[in-house]
């Protein structure tokens, strides 16, 4: 029981760290993408552990799905990043303010 709780804690902590990594980071968009990946990992870790705990296969199926989604997402994200870099020659987050309110 204790292990389960600590493992859920670990996955939550990972999730939290990744969130903080997203919005505390002002400079680098790559770090943001990596945090995003980390978020997916934390979620799939959580799912896998809960599937083990509950003795159910659905969690693992979901985590596999998430892995593919995360892979697709990061490839699209990197593609956008590349397009963006080709246009503007830089990837600094704090200068992406072309759509101001």
């Amino acid at each position: 029981m204790f292990e389960q709780i600590s493992i859920f804690h670990i996955s939550s902590l990972l999730f939290l760290i990744s969130i903080l990594g997203i919005f505390l980071n002002q400079k680098n968009i790559l770090v943001m993408l990596m945090s995003l990946e980390m978020m997916f990992l934390a979620v799939s870790l959580n799912l896998i552990f809960s599937s083990i705990c509950l003795d159910d296969i659905v969690g693992q199926i979901f985590s596999l799905l998430i892995l593919t989604v995360a892979a697709a997402e990061s490839s699209i994200g990197l593609a956008i990043l590349v397009v963006y870099y080709r246009i503007r020659n830089m990837i600094a987050v704090e200068l992406m303010i072309l759509v101001k309110g």
Binding site: L24, N25, M32, V93, M96, I97, L98, V99, K100, G101
Partner: peptide, 10 residues
Amino acid sequence: ISRLQTGQIT
């Protein structure tokens, strides 16, 4: 309210 829309993703 429009001043909230800074354009900064973060």
